[in-house]
Write a protein that binds this DNA or RNA. Structure first.
Length: 507
RNA sequence: GCCCCGUUCGUCUAGCCCGGUCUAGGACACCUCUCUUUCAAGGAGGAAACAGGGGUUCGAAUCCCCUACGGGGUACCA
């Protein structure tokens, strides 16, 4: 099996593209096949610098790796279509020789004129086809000498000559049989006047030359597949299997998820941050939002595919094992950011502590938070990961560690203090100094014992202590907080708290 | 407009190919209860869907047709 991902470098890859790449990758790995990256940069006007690098970096971050491509080479190099330009022209001319294509000389304004003329005659969207072709300037209508003359002196395109009266049928691995009559097809340009091929020609030629066995791409290509099928026939090549993936739709129902939707939808549509070189505008990526690549890949896999079992959480290796084209659905899938978050949360919890620490430390440092020793960091992560969905939430959940409370507390919080406990506190502190050892379990035992002895309900004690130590009423286990804070810091904070509130008691 | 593809809970979907086992299953989100010092997480439960209409059949979510709706395509863009 040979599959390929063939993006055009017109901007950042959006998550729909990531999913297409992912499905190709999963299949290649599952069947021990090859996975090719081919850059379809045949539209020079839409080329965006940095886009190719972005695509590779984004897929690498996702754990999607290629066997061949412009960045690693391979037996079918080059892998950028712009570098294969001459090749396509040869094949285009070959089709003309065989009578499957012809030269056309119509200018842009002549094409426009034709459209208007036929529209005036009642046609809805006039195309370059059997009906209009005879009225145009091409090698089928012009005398041979004039054609030769024009070929020497003028720009021209090569158009496909759609055969008449045929039903083109092909089997789509996801949709089943699809058939289109050639009367619905138009004479698509194969070779543009700048000598570059269009998608259709380049794609078919390269897929054949690169021995691609399965063309797995977005549904937007379904309507042009009959043309591709005819091209394989015209060249006399065996055609690959086709599979057209359902599209990723906007959550609000207005069409397919597009690059332009950007973060105005409230969630990223790109895997990585992207800075538009033209406008300087920056779009956030999943990585920057704090998603794990495992989470993104897992959620994306689920959008349009369903495993045979009811499990939903998969590592990429498990996806390779479980994935199959037969279980890909036909209908477009609406993107659900909430579920993406949930899937990410599942992976966050499953990640080894060490790896999490490696991810959190750079975040910690980039926020210029006070230095934290490795063992404390791990302890903090352990505390926070249960209540986090995205990476940065871990850091926010341990705010108490790097940001001690300031006293007096805001009125709203201060109102929740239990003053009876405040009175007891000096004595407690005295005993805490001696508490040995200082673990969450010991601290808990101590607090419970003291509270009981004084007849203070634990439900009153803990919130007060929590406010004194963290300034907040909610968060991770207070005993564990005291453990990571350590005896020294805990007592310091309690004393500072007392200094602020001990006075009030006298009043 | 025309062509192609699609349509099961709000969302992702199972079931459909090979009609009865479907009083339609799971997951996210939502609601209730529970656990808990708190917030989460966890546990238990709940509400929630076969687009509509015709056929075929003893029987249809499943097969056929029509309609509606959604999406895609209709460029010298991919």
């Amino acid at each position: 099996m040979v599959v390929r991902f063939a993006p055009s470098p017109t901007g950042p890859l959006h998550i729909g593209g990531v999913r297409t790449a992912l499905y190709n990758y999963l299949l290649a790995r599952k069947h021990g096949g090859r996975f090719i990256l081919r850059i379809e940069d045949t539209d020079q006007t839409r080329f965006v610098p940095g886009a190719e690098e972005y695509i590779i970096e984004a897929l690498t971050w996702c754990g999607i790796e290629f066997d061949e491509g412009p960045h690693i080479g391979g037996p079918h190099a080059p892998y950028r279509q712009s570098e294969r330009k001459a090749l396509y022209a040869q094949y285009a001319h070959l089709l003309v020789e065989r009578g499957w294509a012809y030269y056309a000389f119509d200018t842009e304004s002549e094409l426009e004129e034709m459209r208007q003329r036929f529209e005036a005659a009642g046609m809805v969207a006039p195309q370059y086809n059997a009906v209009t072709r005879p009225y145009m300037k091409n090698s089928l209508t012009l005398p041979p000498e004039e054609v030769q003359e024009r070929l020497r002196t003028q720009p021209y395109v090569v158009r496909f000559l759609v055969p008449r009266g045929r039903e083109v049928r092909f089997y789509d691995e996801i949709r089943g049989w699809v058939s289109v009559h050639t009367k619905e097809m138009d004479d698509k340009v194969l070779l543009k006047s700048d000598g570059m091929p269009t998608y259709h020609l380049a794609n078919v030629v390269d897929d054949h030359l690169m021995r691609v066995t399965h063309v797995i791409r977005g549904e937007e290509w379904l309507p042009s597949t009959p043309l591709h099928v005819l091209l394989y026939e015209a060249f006399g090549w065996e055609r690959p299997k086709f599979a057209h993936l359902p599209l990723l739709l906007r959550p609000d129902g207005g069409g397919k998820l597009s690059k332009r939707d950007g973060d105005q939808l409230g969630f990223p549509v790109f895997p990585l941050q992207w800075r538009d070189p033209q406008t300087g505008e920056t779009s956030e990526g999943y990585r920057e939002r704090g998603f794990l690549p495992e989470g993104v890949v897992n959620y994306l896999a689920l959008l349009g595919w369903h495993p045979a079992e009811e499990r939903e959480i998969f590592t990429i290796d498990e996806l390779i094992e479980a994935f199959s084209l037969e279980r890909v659905s036909k209908a477009g899938a609406r993107f659900d950011f909430e579920k993406a978050r949930w899937v990410n949360q599942q992976h966050l919890r499953a990640l080894p502590l060490r790896r999490l620490a490696e991810l959190i430390r750079p975040l910690w440092e980039s926020r210029r938070l006070p230095p934290v020793p490795e063992n404390s960091l791990m302890a903090l992560i352990e505390l926070a990961r249960e209540r986090a969905t995205l990476l940065p939430e871990i850091i926010e959940a341990v705010r108490f560690y790097y940001e001690p409370p300031t006293f007096p507390l805001p009125d709203q919080q201060g109102a929740k203090l239990n003053l009876a406990l405040v009175e007891e506190l000096p004595e407690w502190i005295g005993e805490l100094v001696e508490l040995e050892p200082w673990t969450a379990e010991d601290v808990e035992r101590f607090i419970r014992r003291k509270a009981e002895a004084r007849g203070l309900p634990i439900g009153k004690v803990l919130p007060t202590l929590r406010l004194a130590l963290t300034g907040d009423v909610s968060g991770p286990s207070l005993y564990k907080i005291m453990e990571v804070l350590g005896r020294g810091e805990t007592i310091t904070r309690l004393e500072r708290f007392l200094a602020a509130y001990g006075v009030q008691r006298q009043v």
